[in-house]
Each structure stands twice: as C-alpha cells, then as structure tokens.
C-alpha cells in the first residue's frame, strides 16, 4: 500500500543544552493515501509539534518522515507545499486582518506559480460553501465559521493531496463545528484527500478519522482503530483515562 504519510522514529525538540525540551519522542505511524488519522492528547503532549515537524515549522527533528514516497530532508521543496497544506486552530489568528479573502487566496496561488488565479478563487470559494459575495471581505467582516471556511479554502486552492488539520473546530460553537466537520468530510471525498487531524476531542476525532494515535507527554502510547476506541478495547491506562474523562 502507498502511504500518504509515513513517520518512523521521529523525535522533535526545542532549545539546546539544559534548556532542551523533548516535545516528541520516537513517534511512528502511517497514514495510507486517502486515509484519515487522528492524534489525540492533552495540551503539551506533542500532537501539534508533529504537524510542525512535518511542515518544517519545527526545525530540530530526527528520524524519518516520508510524504507520498518522498523522504523529507532539512528543507521543504515548493512541490512539498503544493501537496501538503495545513489548517490552523484559531481562525481569528490565522488570517491576515488587512487582507481581503481575495488577497489571502491569490497570494498563496501566485507564490506557488499557479495560472488562472481568478477561476481558482471562484472554485475554491464555491467548494467551501462561501458565495462570491465573500470574495472581497476582510476577516473582521466574517464570523468564526466563515473564517475557518476561508482558511480551508486557502489550503485547498493549492490542490494539495494531504491536509494537516490542527484542532480545526475547537474555537467554534458546536453547531458551527458540525458544519465545518461536514464540509471536511465532503471535501475529502471529492478531492481524495489524506487527513492528519489533531484534536483534544475524542468525539471529533472519532467522527472524522479511521485510526487514532493517543499521545501522552511526547510519546504515542497507543495506536488503535476507531472501532476499538468505540468499544473501549484499549490496552493502555492513559487511553482509558481519556475515554472516561471525555464522557
């Protein structure tokens, strides 16, 4: 089988010497192409750091990260950013306040040397269920859910095959969360996307993913299928603790 994402023995750290913090230790997991994998854990468990290591936002890492068959080195190629895109947690913080939706989308398109920018923006806005009337609005003229749709559109215009989702709905109300999760489910089917999703909410991961890695203080303590998680077939006390706390 082809793996969209393949991590082997990945460790990530911040700082040097006595300041060094090992945020992720020896993490290994695979996500098949077109699959969806969730990482759950508490704050500080290292789940977002794994996404940062993949995108190159965290520079100090070792081990092997393979994306769509290409092993990653120190730097990321332009091709990498065309195939891997990320949606961040807080839609209030992740959009430039002085850029219109149109500017946000066209900037990432022109940086990645796409043509037909106009058509692509129209298509991307339609994809995420925002009409053309939103195209020239500023972020402060949008609600939280609409902003997150723009953030998803920004990731999608580059036609990636892998989306990294870092708590995409935790800043939203439950009714808006339902809309965004449905949108992500539909987009994955339409565009054959591979999802790697980070969340602290077991129910959200359970809804979106087929396999879950449970993280605790920098280590993946258990990887299990959603069916096993649902039936509480877990071998690790920490997973059990999370399950009990989240009801």
């Amino acid at each position: 089988m082809n793996y969209g994402i393949d991590l082997k023995d990945v460790s990530v750290w911040f700082g040097e010497g006595s300041e060094r913090v090992d945020a992720v230790r020896h993490a290994s997991f695979t996500v098949p192409e077109g699959g969806s994998f969730g990482l759950v854990g508490e704050s500080g468990s290292g789940k977002s750091t794994i996404l940062k290591a993949i995108t190159g936002l965290a520079e100090n890492w070792q081990g092997s990260i393979t994306i769509l068959g290409n092993q990653l080195g120190k730097t990321r190629s332009n091709q990498f950013y065309k195939s891997v895109q990320m949606v961040f947690q807080d839609p209030y913080a992740s959009l430039h306040p002085r850029y219109t939706v149109d500017q946000v989308l066209s900037e990432s398109l022109s940086l990645n040397t796409f043509d037909n920018i106009d058509q692509r923006i129209v298509a991307a806005l339609d994809d995420v269920g925002l009409g053309q009337s939103f195209r020239f609005r500023y972020p402060h003229q949008l609600s939280g859910g609409q902003r997150q749709r723009v953030a998803i559109a920004r990731a999608l215009v580059l036609e990636p095959s892998i989306l990294l989702l870092d708590e995409p709905t935790s800043a939203l109300d439950v009714s808006v969360q339902a809309e965004i999760l449905n949108l992500l489910t539909d987009l994955r089917q339409e565009h054959d996307l591979t999802y790697l999703m980070v969340s602290h909410d077991l129910a959200v991961v359970g809804h979106m993913c087929s396999n879950v890695g449970v993280m605790n203080s920098g280590e993946i303590v258990e990887i299990l299928s959603i069916e096993d998680l649902r039936e509480r077939k877990t071998n690790h006390p920490y997973t059990r603790q999370l399950l009990e706390a989240s009801v």
Binding site: V174, A178, L181, D201, L202, A203, H207, L229, R230
Partner: peptide, 9 residues
C-alpha cells in the same frame, strides 16, 4: 449537532 463517539454517522 454534536459528534458522539458511541454513535457514528
């Protein structure tokens, strides 16, 4: 509208 682990849809 809440996702529930026990009731997948």
């Amino acid at each position: 509208s809440m996702p529930q682990l026990a009731y997948p849809r």
